[in-house]
Amino acid sequence: MSVPTTTGPSRRTVLCGLAVALATPGALAACSSGGTPSGAAPAPAPAPGTTAPSATAAGGGTPVAQIPVGGGTIATVGDRSVLLVQPTAGQFKGFDATCPHQGTTVDPPENGVITCPNHFSQFDAATGAVRKGPADTGLTEVPVTVVDGTVQVS
């Protein structure tokens, strides 16, 4: 009795490749002729009232100019993400950028509200207090100071 043979990729191979392509936004861009030179998809523009992830100034910290009044930016401090906000002109605050519901990184505030993109919990941009669940606790405040025109996590 002979065993039938196949000449193309298995169903499993095709489905696994499709899963990888769908899970990796830049994967298909690398195959197209219009991709960026690195093969990665270009980064999206930041939403109004926000900035792109902050750059670190030479002495450490995030330049105050990168934190808009009424908005904020995500800064990487060591191995964690910190949301730096400026609720009113000259007032700077920091919050752990991790949503207490399921650990997703929250978005910078819009109109005084910080939103988690995963399940849409909402937090007050000035206090970090939860405004709307499913999160049942607010964002953890992180002490910050302004030194030489930069916001530094204390």
Rank of each mutant, 00 (worst) to 15 (best):
L18A: 08
P100M: 08
G17N: 08
Q91I: 11
L84C: 07
A57Q: 15
D79H: 12
P68A: 09
P108L: 06
T76Y: 10
P100W: 09
T115C: 02
V3Q: 04
A52V: 00
P46T: 00
T115K: 00
T50I: 05
P68M: 12
C116Q: 02
Q122I: 15
T127R: 14
D79L: 10
G60V: 02
P108N: 09
K93M: 04
I67D: 11
G94P: 05
P9D: 03
S81V: 14
T105V: 07
A29Q: 02
S2R: 03
N118E: 14
C16S: 06
T88Y: 02
P100S: 11
G70Y: 05
P25A: 03
P108K: 08
A129V: 05
P48T: 14
G71P: 02
C31R: 01
A65W: 01
T50S: 15
T51R: 07
G128N: 15
A19C: 12
I74H: 15
I67E: 06
G26L: 00
A65S: 09
Q86D: 06
V82I: 13
H119E: 13
A97H: 12
A65L: 01
A45N: 11
G17L: 04
S121Y: 04
T24K: 01
P109D: 09
P108Q: 13
G78S: 00
V3C: 07
